[in-house]
């Protein structure tokens, strides 16, 4: 569980990848994602995978990425079986590889981009503040929720209730543990709303965005390469 959460935790590093404007990274991720979806050729997929490596290494995201992928092992195994049943051996494995690739791209983006920068990028694309706000606040509260679930589980265990029993009892336990979580989260939401009002939320329609995004040479370069190469590959394969 925590492995997946690792994906959304921004690492406080200062690497060339972190310094890239989130918009150029979004273009890059989008292009590579399109290629992954469209292509079944194992050679090109391998090349694509290799092209991710410099991003991971330069972004110092290797260990976190591996942890995130490791946490999905169970899910991936199930997927492999299903894909193989559907597509046959060869394409089944390729389908799973495409899935892992797509997840990695997604992870690399979020491991090297601060959520506030991401929100600023969305805002520059014209997406309304309310949406961005929900996004950032949710991301902000993920670690808090994680610890709270821990505390609540601890409190439940400390009531002398043995957790490992029948499936039905397990489900009942989890349902019971949800109650305090929902209560605490709802109360928090109310306090947050009050706090936001008290800090002039809704004062006027036009808000300033403090966070500034600036595109540099490296960003234009990345966008150019991503777009050109993607179009090139697609043209080569389909024309």
């Amino acid at each position: 569980m925590s492995g997946i959460l690792q994906i959304l935790q921004w690492i406080k590093e200062d690497t060339p990848i972190h310094r890239l404007d989130p918009r150029s990274k979004m273009v890059w991720a989008f292009c590579v994602m399109i290629l992954v979806i469209m292509i079944w050729d194992p050679i090109i997929l391998t090349l694509l995978t290799l092209s991710l490596i410099p991003f991971v290494v330069l972004g110092k995201a290797t260990s976190r990425l591996l942890i995130a992928l490791k946490s999905m092992v169970f899910f991936t195994v199930v997927l492999v079986i299903l894909e193989i049943l559907y597509y046959g051996w060869f394409f089944g494995i390729i389908a799973t590889a495409k899935f892992i690739l797509a997840t990695s791209i997604f992870s690399i983006f979020f491991l090297t981009t601060h959520i506030d920068d991401f929100a600023a990028a969305l805002s520059s694309f014209g997406i309304p503040f309310e949406f961005n706000f929900v996004l950032v606040t949710s991301a902000k509260y993920i670690p808090v929720l994680f610890w709270e679930i821990q505390d609540i589980t601890d409190a439940y265990k400390a009531r002398g209730i043995e957790l490992e029993k029948s499936m039905l009892q397990k489900i009942r336990s989890y349902a019971t543990m949800l109650v305090p979580l929902i209560i605490v989260t709802t109360r928090r939401a109310l306090t947050m709303a009050e706090a936001m009002e008290a800090r002039a939320f809704g004062y006027q329609k036009k808000r300033t965005t403090y966070r500034q995004l600036k595109m540099h040479l490296a960003d234009y370069f990345l966008i150019a390469i991503s777009v050109v190469l993607s179009i090139g590959v697609i043209v080569l394969l389909y024309v």
């Binding site: 505390d151 409190a155 439940y156 400390a158 009531r159 002398g160 043995e162 605490v184 109360r187």
Partner: peptide
């Protein structure tokens, strides 16, 4: 934990976490 809880009862900081 269940066994030990019969010897040591733990009351958490925030009662809302332990009222189900």
């Amino acid at each position: 934990v269940a066994e030990l809880s019969t010897r040591v009862g733990y009351v958490f900081q925030n009662p809302l976490y332990q009222l189900f």
